[in-house]
Structures are given as structure tokens and as C-alpha cells.
Write a protein that binds this DNA or RNA. Sequence first.
DNA 1: GAAACGTGTCAATAAGGCTGACATAAAAGC
DNA 2: GCTTTTATGTCAGCCTTATTGACACGTTTC
Lengths: 177, 177
Amino acid sequence: MTDIKGGVNQLFLREEELRQGMELLFYAYREFTTEADEILAGIGFGRAHHRVIYFVGRHPGITVSELLAILRITKQSLSRVLGELVRQDYITQATGERDRRQRLLTLTAKGVNLERRLSETQRQRVAEAYGNAGAEAVEGFRKVMLGMLGENDRAKFDVAKFGMVEKPPHRFGDRRR
Amino acid sequence: MTDIKGGVNQLFLREEELRQGMELLFYAYREFTTEADEILAGIGFGRAHHRVIYFVGRHPGITVSELLAILRITKQSLSRVLGELVRQDYITQATGERDRRQRLLTLTAKGVNLERRLSETQRQRVAEAYGNAGAEAVEGFRKVMLGMLGENDRAKFDVAKFGMVEKPPHRFGDRRR
DNA sequence: GAAACGTGTCAATAAGGCTGACATAAAAGC
DNA sequence: GCTTTTATGTCAGCCTTATTGACACGTTTC
């Protein structure tokens, strides 16, 4: 095997490796969503409802604009979905205290319940994959995944833990800077 | 710290860990698709076109039903997208030789070109993430991702390498079993 | 020769995005 | 105090991508 041939083969293997990574993402994401989709379909909701319920559950008291920033959709798109969820009593809106223009979003008991049902299968799937792969592999998984995010999203995982939304964590009572 | 308290905390940490995994998938997938989406929008195509171009490029001579099995959409959905791609000369259809009902799909030069443009940024993103994380982390990433797939999809990665479609690799000339 | 298969197509429907325009109340700036 | 900006909501219309159901045509298989 000559140098050139080896080099070409290297390149080929590398491209193959990268494409496998891309496809893993594609298939894993699909696998990840389909189960919840079925539950959602049963109650007349779609994936968009799930995302809203998920992130409101994750960040109780989140504002509409924070939610929009996470989801990266327009307020018109969110409005339809969020409206349904509020009307059907999955989510409550409370007027913000420091800023009364804000509508702080929180899951109702009904909402918490649905959130549980929806993410249960997903958490199980991740738990299984984590368990089978082992702690070291999980560390690698995280490293790689974090590396694929943009600056903005990555920041959510650096310090952000336990339910805060953006860089300034949910503080109560101080807003002026 | 009592046993009970420790146990609860353990559970909490575990749930947090799993949710972070779920969110990594969500954000990574979105990050992964947006760049290509912009290119696609520029030529009047959508994400669906990308998927078709990608998998036809990956499996030259793939049949319509094999493609449907990969994408898991209906033939009516595929038809529109595939039709556009064929009409605009990104993909050619050739009548199968052993089975003349089949339309074997292949990228044209134009199609190969577009495929390159589209997946280039994605490959780069994966390459960077892989490079920064290191070989060991990549191994972990793969392990975890494979663990999240269903049996069916996982099989594509076990033996499947270098462009074959399903379990029976693309053979020429034997179809009867 | 009949049944099954691979593919294509017509029609209607739904989900979930988008843009643009406009409205209202509250906060912030001067 | 008056003006501007911000947070939110809503109406209207459009697009993409998916669905189901029905039907057609040529080909293969039994």
C-alpha cells in the first residue's frame, strides 16, 4: 500500500465516519420523538405541544419571550399551541409581579401529569442507552454533543442546571441592574 | 446526610442527567439542520428534499420502496419531493434490470453537487465536534447513540458500511431466495 | 390466469411553521 | 408628563411536509 492509496483510504474512512455520525443523529432523533408523538396524537396534540409543555415544565414561571428564545419560533406559531394548552388547562398564565406585561407560564397539575407521561418513555430510552453504554461512554456522548451546539445553546449546559432559563437565572425580586 | 435524603438526591441528579441528555439531542438536531435549511430555502427546496438527496447519494441505485423504508414516510409524500428532484434533474430514475417495476434512483452530477454543498457544513460540524472531543469520546458518543436506536435502525450500523441499504446488501443479479 | 407487488397519481386534510399588520397595556426614557 | 419601547396577543394568508383513501398500470410470481 502506497502513501497515496493510504491517504485516500484515510479520507474515505473519515468521510464514512462523519456520515455515520450524521445518520446516528437523524435516526436517534426520530426514534426519540415517535413514541411521544403517538401519545400526543391520542389527545389531539402534536410535537409542538410537547415542546412547550416540556420547557414550561423545565422552567416554571418562564416568560413567553424566554420560551420563544428557546424554541426559536415566532410568537404567532407559539400562540396557537400555547393558547390551546392554556384553554385546556395544561398551563396557567400569571401576570408578572415585577413586570406586569409578562405572562409567567407554569404547568398545572394536569400539565405536569401529561409532561410525565410524555417524557417518561424518552427518559427511559436515554436511561437505557446510558446504562448500557456506561459512564465513560456517557461522558463522551456529552462531549461530542456539546461540541455540535452553537455558542448560545451550549451556554445552557455549562453552568445551567436545575431549571434556570437563560444566563441570568430566575431571580425573585431583583430585576434592575 | 441520611440514607433517604441521599437517595432522593441521587434520583434528582439522575433525572437531571437524563433530561440533559434529551435536551442535548433536541438542540444538536436543530443546530444540525438549520444551516442546510438556509441553503435549501435559497433554491426553493425544503428539508425533505435534503433527506431524499442525502440517502439517494448514500445508496446509489436505491429503489423507491427502500427509500420509503429509510425515511418512513408515505409514498405520496415522497412522490412530490422526488418528482421535483427528478424534474429538475437532481436525480435520475432507471428501470431495474432484474425487476422492471423498480425505479432505481441515482444522483445526477447536479445532484451530487447539491448534496456536497448541503452536507458539507454538517460534516464539518461533526468533524469539529469529533476532533475536539477526541477519539475516546467519539466511541462513547456512538455507543450511546446506537443504544437509543430501535433494532431496525441499529442494524444499519452493525455491519452496514460503505453504502449498502438493508440487510441484504445491494447485489447485482441475484434476487430470488 | 390470478394474485401480489412496485410505483405513480388524484384529492382532501392536518400540523406547524412563516410574514405582515395591527392592538393594548406596561415600562422606561427624557 | 409625554413619548418610545417592550411584552404579549391576534387576525389573515401562505408554505411545506406529512397524512389517509382510492384508483391505475405494468410486472412478477404462484
